[in-house]
Computed example of a mutant assay.
Amino acid sequence: MLNFTKTVVCCLAVVALSSVSEAGEAIAYRLSKTKEMHFDDGRKAEQHLAAVKKLGCEARMDSHGGHTDVIYRSAKWQVMEVANDKLVHQWEDWLKKAGFETVHGHAADHGSGHDAHDGHDLSGHDHAGHSHEGHSHSPGKAEEVSYVMQNWKTIHSQDATQMSELVALMKGLGCEVRTEDHGGHKDVSVRCPQWKHVEVASHEAAAGWQDWLRKNGFETRHEH
């Protein structure tokens, strides 16, 4: 992970310049609980600090006892848009190793046989309305939740933070997203005309996804 971190800051600068129309894939990420990562190499600690700050995290360093701690969190869902699926998976691996939850929707023909992606679990997910605390998420037991929304659905809200998180999650799921500000509120229009799926770590997590997706207008299927 640390070797990849060396390129993160530069890559993030490029990602930030990419427009929505140019980006081919997206990944949503969140780190709701403060993460503390230890480094014996101060230079690597600085690189990691710069990387998580570029990702929009609250972050700081604390040096003591001959090592450096990088302390960071990203309490709200954010999104990164990149050129292709390969880059998404590289970022997803890095984000998970750095402690983040992730959401990335796969096309229906995406290769199967992956191990469970812990970052896709909805444990503690504010939007799911379903608690997964204490459930088992054993590796190698991934389940798929498939979803589709053929027609555009428009969601209205005056809560800018809530809508920003919704946009991040919808983009992470691979949906088409349009936003419009007017009349003192924000409209978000969403559709997902082709079947996609997320991989989750347990049956309980899959149930949480289905519940959240259906409440937001999706048709869903759950594949064991």
Rank of each mutant, 00 (worst) to 15 (best):
M1W: 01
N3T: 13
F4Q: 12
F4N: 09
K6Q: 14
T7F: 13
V9G: 06
C11P: 00
C11Q: 15
L12Q: 13
L12S: 13
A13L: 10
V14A: 14
V15C: 08
L17F: 04
L17W: 02
V20E: 12
A23L: 05
G24H: 10
R30W: 03
K33S: 07
K33C: 03
T34A: 11
K35D: 02
E36C: 13
E36D: 09
E36Y: 05
D41S: 15
D41L: 14
G42R: 15
H48W: 12
L55F: 14
L55Q: 06
E58W: 05
S63G: 10
H64F: 13
G66K: 14
T68F: 11
V70R: 06
I71K: 06
S74H: 07
S74E: 02
S74Y: 01
K76Q: 09
W77A: 04
W77R: 00
Q78A: 07
M80H: 02
E81H: 01
V82L: 11
V82P: 04
A83W: 01
N84E: 07
D85H: 10
D85K: 05
K86H: 09
L87G: 04
Q90A: 07
Q90R: 10
Q90L: 08
W91Y: 11
E92C: 02
D93G: 02
W94N: 05
L95W: 05
K97F: 06
K97P: 00
A98L: 07
G99N: 04
F100D: 00
T102K: 01
V103H: 00
H110F: 10
S112R: 08
D115V: 01
H117L: 08
D118C: 00
D118V: 06
D121F: 00
L122A: 06
A128Y: 05
E133R: 12
G134P: 11
G134R: 10
S136Y: 09
P139V: 07
G140V: 12
A142G: 15
V145D: 10
V145L: 10
V148C: 14
V148Q: 14
Q150F: 06
N151R: 13
N151L: 08
N151D: 15
N151E: 15
W152T: 09
S157I: 05
D159E: 09
A160P: 00
T161S: 11
Q162M: 07
M163F: 00
S164I: 00
V167E: 12
V167G: 04
V167Y: 01
V167N: 02
V167H: 02
A168N: 02
A168F: 02
M170F: 11
K171R: 13
G172N: 05
G172Y: 04
G174A: 06
C175F: 04
C175I: 00
E176K: 11
R178S: 04
D181T: 05
G183V: 01
P193A: 08
W195P: 02
H197I: 01
V198C: 04
E199T: 08
V200T: 14
A206G: 08
W209H: 05
W209Y: 13
W209R: 04
Q210M: 11
Q210I: 11
D211K: 15
W212M: 15
K215Y: 06
K215G: 10
G217I: 10
E219H: 12
E223Q: 12
E223H: 15
H224S: 15
